[in-house]
Simulated scan of single mutants.
Amino acid sequence: MQQQIAPEQNGESKPDLTIGFLLMKQFTLASVAGLVESLRFAADESFSSRQIFCRWEWMTCDDQPVTASCGLPVSPTAALDFSRNWDYFVVAGGLLEETRQPPQWLLHALREIHARNIPIITLCSGAFVAGNAGLLDGRQCAIHFTTRDEFRLRFPKAIPVIDKTYIKDGGIISCPGGTAIDLAADLIRQHCGLVRSQKVLKYLLVDDTAVPASRAKQKENQNPPDVYENDVVNKVIELMKHHLDSPVPLAEVAAFAGVTFRQLNLIFTKCTSYSAAVYWRRMRLEQARKLMADSSNSINAIAAATGFADASHLIAWFRKQYGETPSSYRKRRREVEKLIKP
């Protein structure tokens, strides 16, 4: 698992997608490999495995090499540093003996990462680590069918699900194992655009047209909002989704949901880790980025289509959210499309 990290050139902004991997002892290789190989294909303009548009690091609990459950040794590429502003932090589990009773310092660190609104991805038995940290209470969690009974006993407040390739709920993305390519493709589509997501599936020999029923609904809406175990939140998210171009006052949204403005924000913060206003703005920014990647519409037109006052308003929030301007983002998308289109 060697990697080539390309230095930033000409003052380029941060990559589209950054992921920190914490490899637990005896981690399952298949899901980690499926996720990182997908990133590798999306990370470069060609196929030189340079970490340009996507970047990742391997870390371990003691900064020493670990061995996967299949016997493959892996050395960390970076010291374990929870202060980094990753787009996602992955806890890669495997054999339950290594994840049933994780150290308290790790649980504390994961709670802090979650409080900073950095999504945590659990692979395989990594869900047991998140469960021990109390991050799955009241939330759905995708787990492997072989661990369901023990998971229920250990975490009675969590909601285990065994028929999903992954679940996003409350800032935790749980993946029960397998290849994790579905999860990787959707992350890449969300952060890097549809073209590079299709490139990944093509070169991993995945037929994107022959998707199982569990993925069909996701294909209809390339950036589906999270689904939460709260009727008010789900009802409001549906309203937000249908008013991306014309946000209505949140007081009216709260009235629509039958709660007060204060209650609305409390519920949203508990379920999504964001206030209702921030969640809605992030949805609109994601839609704007999708339109920039997949259309030739002007920034003014995209601003109007996503509920921003004008182009400068959108540019300011886009730069704050993604660390670059829409024009620089689009420029890199065009370069990638030229290289990978036949």
Rank of each mutant, 00 (worst) to 15 (best):
N223Q: 15
D207R: 07
G126S: 09
N117Y: 06
F89S: 04
N300V: 08
G20S: 02
H114A: 07
L250R: 03
K235A: 13
L264Q: 02
T306Q: 07
S125F: 08
K290Y: 13
Q263C: 07
L187W: 03
A213R: 05
E12G: 08
S83Y: 05
V91P: 04
L135P: 01
L205S: 13
F151S: 06
P326H: 03
A180I: 04
T28N: 11
Q51N: 02
K157W: 00
R139N: 04
G177T: 02
S273W: 13
S327E: 15
Y203Q: 11
V36A: 06
A301P: 04
A33T: 10
K235Y: 12
A185Q: 11
Q218W: 14
D63P: 10
L135I: 00
S48R: 09
A254I: 05
E98Q: 14
Y228I: 08
S13H: 03
N132T: 09
I315Q: 14
R189F: 08
I181S: 08
Y228N: 10
A316G: 06
R139D: 02
D294T: 10
P65L: 08
A303M: 04
A251L: 12
L183M: 07
F151H: 05
Q2V: 14
K320S: 11
F47K: 14
R84Y: 08
H313I: 00
T269A: 11
T179K: 10
E57C: 02
N230M: 11
P73M: 05
K14T: 14
V32E: 01
G171A: 02
A30M: 14
Q9L: 13
L35Y: 00
F128N: 02
H313M: 04
K217Q: 15
F21R: 00
E150S: 13
N221E: 09
T60S: 11
M24T: 03
C124A: 11
Q198A: 12
A158T: 08
H144G: 07
L29E: 07
C271A: 15
G258H: 05
G11K: 07
S275G: 14
A180L: 06
T325R: 06
S75E: 15
P76V: 08
V66F: 06
Y203E: 11
R154I: 05
S298T: 12
A276C: 15
F268W: 02
Q222K: 13
R332M: 03
E335C: 06
E335V: 09
A130Y: 00
R116L: 04
F155Y: 12
N234D: 14
T18Y: 03
V161N: 06
S31V: 12
